[in-house]
Design a protein around this nucleic acid. Sequence first.
DNA 1: CGCTCCGTTGAAACGAATCAATGAAGGTGG
DNA 2: CCACCTTCATTGATTCGTTTCAACGGAGCG
Lengths: 259, 259
Amino acid sequence: MTVQLSEASCTSSGAANSVLLAFTSKTARQIRGYGECFPCALLLAEAPPEQHADFDALVHDQDFGHSEVLYRATAPVDAVHFIQMGAVKLVRTGPTGEQRIVRVLKTGDSAGTESIFSQTYEHTAIALGDVRVCSIPVALFLKLVAGSGRTQMWLLQKSLTALNDVETWLLQLAGGSVSSRVRIARLMLKLCADNEGHIHRLPLKEMGAIVGLVEETVCRVISEFDRQGIIAKDGSGSVFGQRYFRGNIPALKKIAHEP
Amino acid sequence: MTVQLSEASCTSSGAANSVLLAFTSKTARQIRGYGECFPCALLLAEAPPEQHADFDALVHDQDFGHSEVLYRATAPVDAVHFIQMGAVKLVRTGPTGEQRIVRVLKTGDSAGTESIFSQTYEHTAIALGDVRVCSIPVALFLKLVAGSGRTQMWLLQKSLTALNDVETWLLQLAGGSVSSRVRIARLMLKLCADNEGHIHRLPLKEMGAIVGLVEETVCRVISEFDRQGIIAKDGSGSVFGQRYFRGNIPALKKIAHEP
DNA sequence: CGCTCCGTTGAAACGAATCAATGAAGGTGG
DNA sequence: CCACCTTCATTGATTCGTTTCAACGGAGCG
């Protein structure tokens, strides 16, 4: 039996060029049970059979709780992680110690692959809420990648998507002539968790670290949105309400397109 | 005769992981005369002989003058360009029309490769000063890449380097809590043309488009640097003086590390 | 010569950072 | 179970930096 497995079911951002990524084989789930994780399925499907044992021995699931560290900048690169569930922030530290969140990874993204050619990680990766990942030692990962053109193309595509994301980030969120109000509206649109208006809720300080604003300013803007009924602090009191906003997406989009 | 050809001689930013890129063969210059251009040399060395004719027919040098457009955002992707000489700015346009320079490419970088999986370009690429590039139709490029794992790894590495650059850009230059003075000092360090203190001189408005400041503010800061003797408007009057500043690099570095 | 583009400078308006103080929530240990 | 402590969110008053508006001079060009 042959089955088409496309990344569309796994990725969150951008329209994947599925021509390159669809592959025909037994589904990964059938192969070994890594079906939940597209990258693992791809790697396994492309690996020569004699490496399957390595794979089983070295690849493992890992769970992280809120604000736990997946890896730390300047630490030696030991593994790459594929996010099966949850969100992860990538933090950079500047020459004078200033910190800034440069990306937020969601389900289907990979963490650490930026650094596979470096000696040390370039970011600190921190879980936002509960996170489940597949971890692969970097040595094995490199071996598997080297042997598979398809995996290389997949990685390349992921990397280009990430590049695109960061540039969009830079354009739309980073300071400059755009008002705080607009920047935060744009940020909220980026942090959408679904199509129901659920928005990942970060601490105000973290939002500030993304858009380059101070905690208090973020608070003021969000309070204003709240007063205008554009967002609500979903089920205040419940755990849910501390993890998500509920937002009026069209209204936010309108603001995001203001000057 | 076998010769090691490493990209170190071609790239400008970051320490290339030459293990991956060094390849053993006749040098490209010997092969066909594309030796000046590392990517062409690589592609040609990796291409099967029957494609060499295509290569000769379709790959050609191209020159651009100051502020000429290499390609335009939203236009269909037709070719990728390897910069042999000069500098190119990549401009993005936001939802509300705001423009921002997200990267500046220099000799050894490639333009357009970000978009090889897209239908349309993501940036507008504009020459800064005189530029010479090698242009390859994207269809041929994709064919060559698909057939060569080494080229894929090279592209991947380039892409990761670009990602790294943009994130650094975002962290260090984009607004937020960093003062205009520091941001511009950092920008000037990025625009260094050599080790003699020559700095690429962009119109004030363009500098503003990079760091997210208004023309006038940039002017004030630069005037201040001038008054303090940190930079000079190299040989005012000469063509040279309109293309470069002369800067006191250590002094600029000192400012760049201020809070 | 008049035109436009670019750089330059000043004065005033605005927005965000800063400083400061308070309240709500969660965790800890008695 | 409650007092304590820490962290996070909130709000106000003030200060500071950057934008905005405006005006002018110089360079290049038709």
